[in-house]
Computed example of a mutant assay.
Amino acid sequence: MFEMTDEEKAALDRLLIHARGDTGQSRRVADFLLAWWNAEECGGFDIAATWGLDANIAADVVIVFALAVRAGGYPDNLGYGPQFESIVRDWRPGLMTQ
């Protein structure tokens, strides 16, 4: 079974909190997370969007990107399905009816 490091879990948890906000940074974080969740339906992620993030948030994005690569799977495989579904409801509500 795959296990996240404490650093990876903390970074992902912080990004999930940021994605629940209603700021431009929240939108960028949500876009990043949803690209991992399902890029085909939720949209990809423009790496230049990180330029609009605070340094600490961008550092968490880097950690979570490495986590996604290392895990070789989707966030629901790590037990984060409900949290990502919540982000879809907040940022891609049109996908909830599909």
Rank of each mutant, 00 (worst) to 15 (best):
F84Y: 15
R92S: 07
L33E: 13
V29E: 08
A68D: 10
V29R: 01
G79Q: 10
G43E: 14
P93M: 08
A59W: 03
D90A: 08
I87W: 01
D13A: 06
E3L: 12
F2A: 02
T50L: 07
W91I: 02
A10M: 10
G73L: 08
L15Q: 02
E8C: 00
Q98P: 07
G94N: 12
G81P: 02
T97C: 00
W36V: 14
A71F: 15
G43M: 14
A48S: 14
T5M: 01
P82E: 13
M96Y: 00
D60P: 03
T5I: 01
N56A: 04
P75S: 01
V62N: 08
A30E: 09
D6Y: 02
Q83R: 07
G79F: 06
S86F: 07
G81F: 07
R14D: 10
D46I: 03
A71L: 12
C42M: 13
R89M: 10
V61C: 13
G79A: 07
A35H: 13
L16M: 13
W36Q: 13
V64Q: 05
V88N: 11
R92E: 14
D46Q: 10
G81M: 02
Y74R: 12
I87K: 01
A11W: 06
L12P: 04
S86W: 07
N56C: 03
D54W: 04
G81N: 08
S26C: 00
L53P: 09
R89V: 11
V29P: 08
V62D: 15
E85W: 05
R70T: 04
T50F: 02
R89W: 03
A58R: 15
A11K: 02
C42H: 06
E85D: 15
G73F: 05
A19W: 05
D54E: 14
I87T: 09
A35T: 09
Y80W: 13
K9Y: 02
A11R: 01
L67K: 02
D60M: 08
R27N: 11
A59Q: 12
S26A: 15
D76S: 11
A68N: 12
A48C: 07
S86T: 15
A10F: 01
E8S: 01
L34D: 11
R14W: 02
F65E: 11
L53A: 04
A19E: 12
G43F: 12
D13H: 00
R92Y: 08
W37N: 09
A19T: 09
F84T: 03
A35G: 15
Q83P: 04
G52L: 03
H18T: 06
A68P: 00
W37A: 06
C42A: 14
